[in-house]
């Protein structure tokens, strides 16, 4: 790709040529096709995320999206917009940049590590709720993938709104693994089910962290991977229906998913052994409590005596 050409290091100072607002670079958070995101601090010392690149049109389109979708119908979808400007570097070269809220969170995969498997479904459910709001406004998220998600306080958050596309238009940014066109399962026109497909692929990625390629028969590959995963067993039916294009709206897929999740929490009857263990632990607690009380009493009596 095009070299981005700017030299920014921890401690560098980026000052906007239009507003004069300045930001101190702290560290790089990541870089993508059209820019690099840095953790930085504003004049008040508050943390923020600064994205800088060389394609000013593309960055400005992202700013327009951020302004529009930081909040949709009172629901926070992406990071909120802070500032946009141009930076003239010491060699008189101009680089466009914008500043947004810094969202501190964990990557989906590290969040799920060691958690029970219904969390895969719960995260997907949260994601579908956010998509429902976005879709109601007439837009698809577009480039929906794990890299664009963060877990904050056990809640999934979308962090890059650069791919948001009006329904009926062509998806401009996509990542093959999450793209239904790549798998031969539909067009690249933005509609609600384009995003729903990506949600199903995020679930598949939780079972196959290294992802996988489509092979000669893409839909066969997908089906094989799905049926071979025990993690995804409860969601199998729902995912297949998603691939068959049965869900036209996020709410429908959300409904199927909540049925699965509700069933799982009620169905496994607690086995006797578990119950015994529980009773056992209760006993231990009781004994500890009594010992502590006696000790406390003893100390009180002792001090009283003195």
């Amino acid at each position: 790709m095009k070299k981005q050409g700017f030299n920014l290091y921890p401690g560098s100072y980026v000052r906007g040529k239009w507003s004069g607002h300045g930001y101190i670079i702290e560290k790089e958070l990541g870089s993508g096709a059209c820019g690099t995101v840095f953790l930085s601090r504003n004049a008040k010392g508050e943390k923020c995320a600064l994205k800088i690149g060389s394609d000013s049109s593309r960055l400005m389109l992202e700013v327009n999206m951020l302004k529009k979708f930081g909040k949709v119908q009172g629901v926070k979808l992406g990071p909120s917009f802070v500032d946009v400007d141009d930076w003239v570097d010491p060699s008189r070269q101009t680089f466009p940049f914008y500043v947004m809220e810094y969202i501190e969170g964990a990557a989906l995969r590290s969040f799920l590590k060691g958690k029970s498997r219904e969390w895969v479904g719960i995260c997907a459910l949260q994601l579908l709720s956010d998509l429902e709001h976005l879709h109601r406004a007439g837009y698809a998220f577009g480039d929906l993938k794990t890299d664009n998600l963060l877990m904050v306080d056990s809640r999934v958050r979308l962090i890059d709104v650069g791919g948001v596309t009006q329904f009926g238009r062509a998806i401009k940014e996509y990542t093959e693994f999450y793209d239904r066109g790549y798998w031969g399962l539909g067009s690249r026109k933005a509609d609600p089910s384009y995003d729903l497909f990506a949600v199903s692929m995020i679930m598949l990625e939780m079972a196959y962290p290294g992802r996988f390629e489509k092979g000669v028969k893409p839909s066969r590959t997908l089906m094989n991977k799905l049926t071979a995963s025990t993690l995804l067993k409860p969601y199998q039916k729902m995912i297949i229906q998603c691939w068959e294009g049965k869900y036209l709206h996020a709410s429908e897929m959300k409904h199927s998913l909540s049925l699965v999740l509700m069933k799982r929490t009620m169905s496994p009857p607690p086995s006797r052994r578990k119950k015994k263990q529980q009773q056992g632990s209760e006993k231990v607690e009781l004994v500890t409590f009594s010992i502590l009380s006696v000790l406390f009493l003893g100390v009180s009596i002792f001090s009283f005596w003195i």
Binding site: W18, S56, S57, R58, M60, L61, V63, N64, V84, D85, D86, T94, P96
Partner: peptide
């Protein structure tokens, strides 16, 4: 487009898009 003031640029990029 790159030289335009920010508010004008925001509008022009939508037209290009």
């Amino acid at each position: 487009i790159e030289e335009l003031p920010l508010d004008k640029r925001a509008e022009v990029v939508e037209v290009v898009d």
